[in-house]
Design a protein around this nucleic acid. Structure first.
Length: 348
DNA sequence: TCTGGGGTCCTCTTTCTC
DNA sequence: TCTGGAGAAAGAGGACCC
């Protein structure tokens, strides 16, 4: 039986800010966008004090401001959070070389071969992270990634939760189906129309029914996940599949020059990114979101892998030309896909 | 009056090729 | 030369994650 540990930093961005500016400790702090709640943007992280006002991630900054005008609003400082994140990951690597990064504030490690109890390992990790960074984290341990991740969410902040394969029914089945990784707002609402609210109710459905409702791949996934089954391995190395940049205009616009200028800037940023990481691309996609929030994409395949700004910009503008820009534009974005690394040229 | 940005993966449809 | 079908590749959209 595997033993997987999932670590989740508590209110990470807000906690980093409160740590480096002690006067913010105990105050409602909201991190997001440019840090100006009058501008367009959403909440990335709210401190626990801010959450008491009903503020949560993905909420528009303006809404957060209405809920708590006294909160401290700060811009996202990825460089600083990345630096702290590296410290946290270094601590984890001391415990196991098999680690999967899940974004900036989460990770899995495989502790199957670590010769200590899960409780000891978890407490030790929490202690070391607190010493190194001054921050708290929550830890979940289970026989697979799915259960470890659900566990880490059960006691927050600064908690440790252990779920074993034989107490899935007791611990997992009463939870909302939304707690399963891969079940978002849409699926939750659909399940609700079927009278399915909990993971246990999902587990009561026959495989054939779930496959009929959700398709082979996702139906099978839900069937297994509701039983706490997950044999997915930890992904320790992976290559990027796409690089993108997008921006939401502060005011919706129908000025072609403004749209074009932004697309040119974003394309330059994407190409710089690609070159820094030694990648070339064969596919360019442009994304437009209109003022009614409808989103469209137009893509084109290039004759060859390239990191030439000229070629990629030409392709992006060719895509832009295929949109009917009848409404005002809210967002413009560009993505390059079908990547290959310059070193392994010709191999894909 | 709202609804970010950077990703992945899946599904369905259209287009290409043999 | 015309037509059709099968299968692959590309394009588009959408759900989901942090």
């Amino acid at each position: 039986m595997r033993r997987i540990l999932h670590l989740d930093m508590d209110a990470f961005f807000a906690a980093v800010e409160q740590k480096r500016r002690p006067e913010l400790a105990g105050m409602p702090v909201v991190i997001g966008g440019s840090g100006d709640p009058g501008q367009r943007g959403v909440v990335s992280t709210a401190s626990y004090e801010a959450r008491k006002f009903g503020i949560h991630s993905a909420m528009p900054l303006r809404t957060a401001y209405r809920l708590c005008p006294d909160a401290v609003f700060l811009p996202v400082d990825y460089e600083e959070y990345s630096r702290v994140s590296r410290q946290v990951k270094e601590v984890l690597r001391e415990f196991s070389p098999v680690m999967e990064d899940v974004g900036i504030d989460e990770a899995f490690i495989d502790i199957t071969d670590v010769d200590r109890t899960p409780e000891e390992i978890s407490a030790d990790i929490q202690k070391k992270i607190r010493e190194q960074t001054g921050l708290t984290c929550s830890i979940g341990i289970g026989p697979n990634k799915l259960l470890a991740k659900i566990a880490s969410d059960m006691r927050k902040p600064d908690g440790i939760t252990i779920i074993s394969a034989d107490n899935v029914e007791k611990r997992i089945w009463p939870l909302s189906a939304r707690k399963l990784w891969g079940v978002g707002p849409k699926t939750e609402a659909y399940l609700d129309t079927l009278g399915i609210k909990t993971i246990g109710q999902l587990a009561a459905e026959p495989l054939e029914r779930l496959v009929g409702l959700f398709g082979e791949s996702y139906g099978t996934y839900l069937f297994k996940a509701s039983r706490g089954e997950d044999d997915s391995p930890l992904v320790t190395h992976w290559a990027p599949k796409s690089v993108s940049r997008e921006t939401t205009f502060q005011k919706d616009t129908d000025t072609w020059q403004e749209i074009a200028r932004n697309l040119a800037d974003l394309t330059r940023d994407v190409v710089n990114d690609m070159r820094k990481t030694g990648l070339r691309s064969r596919n360019v996609t442009v994304k437009v979101r209109f003022d009614d929030f409808r989103t469209q994409t137009r893509a084109t395949t290039l004759p060859d892998f390239t990191d030439s700004l000229e070629e990629i910009r030409r392709a992006a503008f060719q895509c832009l030309g295929r949109f009917e820009l009848k409404r005002k534009v809210r967002l413009i974005g560009v993505r390059v896909g079908r990547l290959e690394s310059r070193e392994e040229e010709g191999s894909s």
